[in-house]
């Protein structure tokens, strides 16, 4: 079994289709949805964790690509501008996965562990300095 966290971008033409259903039913994948969003331009975003046999995962992702769905790393979902970050730490208590955290209580600098980020965007609405922005 393998687990993978990915960001999916759906073109306008695919947002109406029950793609998650097929991932579960046809490819035996366990799907955990972190974020689902349809933009004003009717494009869709989905941040999911897929768990399954390695071969099923590969087939599932191939199925997604065949529908013109872009399969990306979640790290592309949230952009952190280090020049805007003041390391105040306000984001830390709002981040549900501790991806944004203070590693060293002596310096109190805010670090971002990309592997924990689920691109929920709570940091983007909470950062007073606009350091974090979402692609959604």
């Amino acid at each position: 079994m393998k687990s993978e966290k990915i960001l999916l971008r759906f073109p306008k033409t695919e947002t109406g289709k029950p793609i998650v259903y097929h991932l579960i039913k046809d490819y035996n994948l366990v799907v955990n949805i972190y974020v689902a969003k349809i933009t004003q331009d009717k494009e869709g975003y989905l941040v999911v964790n897929l768990t399954g046999e390695e071969a099923d995962l590969a087939r599932g992702k191939a199925f997604l690509r065949s529908l013109q769905v872009q399969v990306e790393s979640v790290e592309n979902g949230i952009l952190r501008d280090n020049s805007r970050c003041t390391h105040c730490g306000n984001c830390v208590s709002h981040c549900p996965t501790n991806a944004l955290h203070i590693a060293d209580r002596k310096t109190m600098r805010v670090e971002l562990d990309q592997s924990l980020c689920i691109a929920c965007s709570l940091c983007t609405t909470n950062c007073p300095f606009g350091a974090c922005t979402s692609v959604f």
């Binding site: 105040c88 730490g89 830390v92 208590s93 709002h94 203070i102 209580r105 310096t107 109190m108 007073p128």
Partner: peptide
């Protein structure tokens, strides 16, 4: 406060700052 958690009436509350100690 800087530890990231305080306790009030037996409840643990996550803390964060708007002042940057680092800067």
């Amino acid at each position: 406060l800087k530890s990231g958690q305080i306790e009030l009436d037996g409840r643990k509350i996550a803390t964060s700052s708007l002042s940057s100690y680092s800067l």
